[in-house]
Design a protein around this nucleic acid. Structure first.
Lengths: 334, 334
DNA sequence: TCGATCCGTCGATGCGCTTCGACAGTCCTG
DNA sequence: CAGGACTGTCGAAGCGCATCGACGGATCGA
């Protein structure tokens, strides 16, 4: 293995000089720096991660806690992961993957063994049980999602309440009087997942303000569940002409089911989805949607983590404003 | 931070004794071990990952290289990831996530900085460009998938050729004379992804042996592409009664499309899928399928990596035998 | 010309751990 | 009862790096 000493002797300088060339923490003459950089390239030197971590107490690793359960929307989770790795690499960090299954103990393990510089947590519940543990860690923490008691923790999320509002407002503007929400799987609600409730509140509140009927249904991600859910909607609210779908996993099945029933989109029923953009455009009909900006969220989470690491900021809550894009699946009522 | 020295002085022993209690590399008297373990718990001691890595040149981290592109089947990729993390934790290792985008340079970076003990690589292509780099690394490497030149590298995969055979054999046994394969997206074939070709070869060979017509089609994961693909099948091979679907992403869309056309499954057309089990059972009709055993593959990959780390084995190729489960989507022809 | 100042570089130290050799004590064997 | 073979423990060295204080030399002003 090539060590800093090898580089130093090749360049005819001391190891500390090499270190300063690499870190830029002291000024080095241009001549020396050039020589050192040449030796580094020539020998293919890379600092030993463990040694660096030991000496500097920085690992250049970010831990990301993800839910790997079946009831989560896997493609969306994956987008977050992808954007987080990418953003982390921009700051010269790698990503350590933890599963939610490991629970608080896993968080303690990672923190206590100084394996990561910061922790990013996905799939945050309203009454998030990990919050006390996270707060007690010395590490910077960023939550993707906002728990009921976020004090002292940095959070990033889409403004789901505003998103719920936006969906209803759009349908209301188009003249729809009865609007139904097809929401996440019952499991998501039962767990008290934070975004589900916030979306629902925005949805309901705005429907009230605009004087629209607002029914909401939880829907598991299976063909049968979708079918049953549409049955419920049509039976309990036969006048429904606007559908808000806050459940990416059932979009395709829902559209197929509506078609099967002879209900045309958007002529008979307008559909607004909450999902990543490419998912909205790759359905059988391009869907009017509120984007779930996975890439921005991942990037923002990493950025907040880095800020905290550099002591540049206190924990803050950053809510991204929803963006509704009108496509082919919504039209005026009647 | 609690160090090994703190534990040692609390327990009244030397640091090296604590280390040996932890590693089990030398025998320690029961009495001493108990005392040390009590101190460890009492103080909440955890070895510093960096220090450990520096001293032992073992990081207890496994690197996993995953494809995060849209044309990959995301849920299946995620299953691999999940099973790999879980398996790694069993061996007390964590998982570092690398993206395929980082390419060979990323592999070198990770290896040269001694950030991981071994590398597991997913989404292997037939003419895999990373193979030379991987072979040159000093680290144990496990590929999930088998490239054309696997020599010197450990590989784990489903036996896709046998899987292709099994699908055809099942349909042939049921008397189907014209069989069509709906395969992965064209992008997958263009990339020369290793499993796609192997499956196709098994499919074609067995169809030949059994005297069946075997057409194959690449199909992109969108509703329109599926529709067009079925159009092609029916136009070019109107007598087709058996469909093999080696493309998890289009299953739901395909079933919906068939229904739309008035083609009943399995009365008019039998369908065999290649996909994870729960995906086969959660469609609108339970599908006869060859399982993609993501969990076993992830576990096997980790196991092979560990074996190599312990010097217990030379690189080997391990192909898992396919398992075809008959469900409601296939029946006798005619 | 002399001291003050700044720039660039070096040496030494320590981060927390694993591991090797050493050693005192115990047990067995002939 | 001497000698050897284990057992259980310790001390010291060293893993590769970052960082702090020190220091030589150049520059500048008076």
């Amino acid at each position: 293995m090539v060590t800093i000493a090898d580089v130093a002797s090749d360049a005819g300088v001391s190891p500390s000089t090499v270190s300063y060339v690499l870190s830029g923490k002291r000024s080095i003459s241009l001549r020396t720096r050039r020589r050192v950089e040449r030796s580094i390239r020539k020998l293919g030197y890379r600092p030993h991660a463990g040694a660096r971590a030991l000496a500097s107490s920085r690992t250049n690793i970010l831990a990301l806690v993800v839910p790997l359960r079946a009831d989560q929307n896997v493609p969306v989770v994956m987008r977050f992961v992808a954007s987080t790795v990418t953003a982390a690499r921009v700051y010269d960090h790698d990503l350590l993957l933890l599963t939610k299954d490991e629970g608080p103990e896993g968080l303690r393990r990672v923190a206590a063994s100084s394996i990561a510089d910061a922790i990013i947590v996905m799939d945050v519940e309203a009454a998030e049980p990990r919050v006390p543990v996270l707060r007690a860690l010395r590490l910077p923490v960023v939550l993707i999602g906002v728990p009921d008691e976020p004090f002292g923790l940095a959070c990033v999320d889409l403004d789901f309440a505003a998103a719920g509002s936006a969906c209803v407002a759009h349908l209301a503007d188009l003249g729809h009087a009865e609007i139904a929400l097809i929401g996440p799987s019952p499991a998501v609600y039962e767990r008290g997942t934070s975004y589900a409730g916030r979306f629902l509140r925005g949805f309901t509140a705005t429907a009230g303000e605009r004087g629209r009927s607002a029914a909401s249904y939880a829907c598991a991600p299976s063909y049968d569940a979708v079918h049953a859910c549409v049955d419920d909607v049509l039976r309990e609210h036969p006048g429904t002409t606007g559908l808000v779908v806050h459940n990416e996993a059932v979009l395709a099945a829902l559209l197929a089911d509506l078609r099967q029933r002879g209900l045309r989109v958007p002529e008979d029923v307008s559909v607004v989805a909450v999902c990543p953009e490419d998912m909205a455009t790759s359905q059988s009909i391009a869907l009017t949607s509120v984007d779930i900006p996975a890439a921005e969220l991942g990037g923002a989470a990493v950025e907040l983590a880095m800020r905290q690491l550099n002591g540049e900021s206190r924990p803050e809550i950053r809510l991204l404003a929803p963006r509704l894009t009108v496509r082919a699946s919504t039209t005026t009522a009647g």
